[in-house]
């Protein structure tokens, strides 16, 4: 693609993602309401659909002041760091056959790297806030990210081994016969668990665990800075869902409908799973979570990789 076309496509993609994230917040709130015997937002627009627009306007017009004694530059930088890498990560996602802005050979590695970068935003924001709750949240974020990145990467290596490529398009193409979720069930489960952590979603949202840390690393954020963290979280859900679909659910493959439509439907379904998990599960304690990652998930992911390697080589 020529330079201008890439910029144009990126702009369209980013705009589309922002809208998608906004709509997703509405979907989440309505679905949670439905799951919890209540209504959820149903006032603004038909079925409350415009709620996310109203929320955006509200967040844009709210005062956004750094607390006294905060490191203002870092405080301002952190929210941007939370949202930007995730948006960049979408650059490598193949929405259809040949439909990717940057079809990198190392696409999967790039996307997971971009996901991992967000931890800098959390730690930086936490540290810059000069708030003790934020500090605790930031520390948890750092420890959790190290623990979960390790087996997130390992859980998808089985797929990479079978497909023989890190490129998204190749991985999808390799699933023409059977989706990798059938070949790699353990890898898929581990990847889903790790992606909950990568997207900072309940039950792995310890860095902002509202019951003990008020709002964790973003306690001091308000207005648009808060919105950027929020946006980062929701776009991250979409990104890990897109990764899950690409790696395990056959990407854009599917009968009758055009590829991008299939891709969108699958991503939506996986994203709904995130909401369902949030409605159902309690939150483990921080040390239990870390222990789970190192003592159970990581060995399982290694075992999975070993077995897959053995099968592929044999």
């Amino acid at each position: 693609m020529s330079g201008w076309l890439v910029i144009l496509a990126s702009a369209v993609l980013i705009a589309g993602l922002l809208v998608a994230a906004g709509v997703f917040t509405w979907v989440e709130r309505r679905l949670l309401g439905f799951l919890q015997e209540r209504l959820g937002p149903n006032r603004v627009g038909p079925f409350g659909f415009l709620q996310w627009v109203a929320d955006t306007v509200k967040l844009l017009t709210k005062e956004d002041a750094p607390p006294e004694g905060a490191d203002v530059i870092a405080f301002r930088l952190a929210p941007a760091l939370a949202a930007l890498p995730i948006l960049a990560g979408f650059g490598v996602v193949a929405f259809g056959d040949g439909l990717a802005i940057a079809p990198l050979d190392m696409g999967v590695v790039f996307a997971t790297a971009m996901l991992a970068l967000t931890v800098y935003a959390l730690v930086l924001g936490a540290w810059a806030s000069r708030n003790r709750y934020a500090l605790l949240g930031g520390l948890r974020a750092a420890a959790q990210m190290i623990a979960y990145e390790a087996f997130l990467g390992l859980s998808l290596m089985g797929v990479v081994l079978i497909a023989g490529s890190f490129a998204m398009a190749d991985i999808v193409a390799a699933q023409k016969g059977a989706w990798f979720i059938l070949v790699q069930p353990l890898g898929a489960v581990l990847f889903f668990i790790a992606s909950l952590a990568a997207a900072h979603r309940l039950p792995f949202d310890l860095q902002e665990s509202e019951t003990d840390l008020v709002a964790g690393f973003m306690t001091e954020y308000s207005g648009m800075s808060f919105a950027l963290f929020f946006l980062g979280e929701y776009v991250a859900i979409l990104l890990v869902s897109a990764l899950a679909v690409t790696l395990f659910l056959g990407g854009w493959l599917g009968p009758w409908l055009p590829g991008p439509v299939w891709f969108g439907l699958k991503v939506g379904a996986v994203a709904l799973l995130f909401i369902w998990v949030r409605a159902a599960l309690p939150r483990p304690r921080y040390d239990q979570l870390i222990a789970f990652a190192w003592k159970l998930a990581l060995p399982l992911a290694l075992l999975n990789l070993l077995l897959t390697g053995w099968v592929v080589v044999a």
Partner: peptide, 16 residues
């Protein structure tokens, strides 16, 4: 109690 260990939904059912 459920909410304070991070479980979001029960409190809503119980309020109904």
């Amino acid at each position: 109690m459920a909410q304070d260990v991070g479980q979001m939904s029960p409190v809503f059912y119980m309020f109904t």
